[in-house]
Computed example of a mutant assay.
Amino acid sequence: MGGEKKATAERLAAYSDAVFAVIVTIMVLELEAPDRPSFSALVPLWPTAISYAVSYLFIAVIWINHHHLMRFAGEPTLGLIWTNFIHLFLVSLLPFATSWIARTGLASAPMVFYAGLFVCIDIAYNVFEYRVLARADHLAERPRRIARRRSLAVLAIFVSAACVATVAPRVGFGLICGGLILHLRPEAGR
């Protein structure tokens, strides 16, 4: 029975890994090369390059933290599986949001949508994290508290980014980048 439980958690992780890989592939397929054969033709593509880089970093951060949390998952409950599916669904919208902000040069409405998507993804991640850590009996209280505080701080930054993006989209984009820095290294379990 123990091997079956492990296999179920591993299947959930493997499925999630596959979805993340598809999302990154879709994002890179959205990149279009310039028609002119000069480096100066790349300059107008800066919104595309920076939005792709930040979105790719976000997916990397999500994957690293997801991978880290799955070590504590144990046998996934139906609630955890559905939370994971909701999280992955929201992440799957990232290529669309990335393309929109890139094509509009980080305009306000697309930036609000992009930041709002980060908020929704982070809420789903927080629920996922809570469900996993609530069942991780062998994890000390301090790492749980650190993970929880960090997750709430990042969520607050993303909410701020969505609000700020209504009047200053590039500042909102900068706040998103700052929020990602807090998630670069998983802390739970250390």
Rank of each mutant, 00 (worst) to 15 (best):
M1G: 10
G2P: 00
E4W: 08
K6Q: 15
K6P: 00
K6Y: 07
R11V: 06
L12T: 11
A13Q: 13
Y15D: 01
A18W: 09
V19M: 03
V19I: 14
V22W: 08
V24G: 08
M27Q: 06
V28F: 14
E30S: 12
L31R: 03
L31S: 06
A33W: 14
A33Y: 12
D35S: 11
S38E: 14
S38I: 04
S38C: 06
F39I: 13
F39A: 15
S40C: 04
L42H: 08
P44T: 04
A49L: 15
I50E: 03
A53D: 05
S55Y: 12
S55M: 09
L57D: 01
W63D: 07
H67G: 05
H67N: 14
L69D: 10
M70S: 13
R71N: 15
F72G: 03
T77L: 11
L78M: 12
G79A: 15
I81K: 11
W82G: 08
N84D: 12
H87N: 11
H87T: 07
L88I: 02
F89D: 01
L90T: 03
L94R: 01
P95L: 06
P95H: 05
F96L: 14
F96C: 00
A97I: 06
A97M: 08
T98M: 10
S99Q: 12
I101K: 02
A102W: 08
A102L: 03
R103C: 00
R103E: 15
L106Q: 03
S108T: 04
A109W: 13
M111S: 10
F113V: 15
F113D: 08
Y114V: 05
Y114S: 02
F118N: 04
F118K: 00
V119A: 03
D122F: 00
D122W: 09
I123P: 01
V127G: 00
E129Q: 14
Y130M: 13
Y130P: 00
Y130K: 14
R131P: 00
R131V: 09
V132W: 10
V132N: 06
A134Y: 02
R135T: 11
A136K: 02
A140R: 11
R148S: 09
R150D: 05
A153H: 07
V154L: 06
L155H: 03
A156L: 11
A156Y: 10
F158E: 04
F158C: 04
V159A: 09
S160D: 06
C163T: 14
C163K: 00
V164K: 01
V164Q: 00
T166P: 00
V167S: 08
V167I: 14
V167E: 01
V171T: 13
F173T: 02
G174H: 01
G174V: 08
L175S: 01
I176F: 09
G178R: 00
G179Y: 09
I181L: 13
I181F: 10
I181R: 01
P186Q: 02
E187K: 08
G189C: 07
R190M: 12
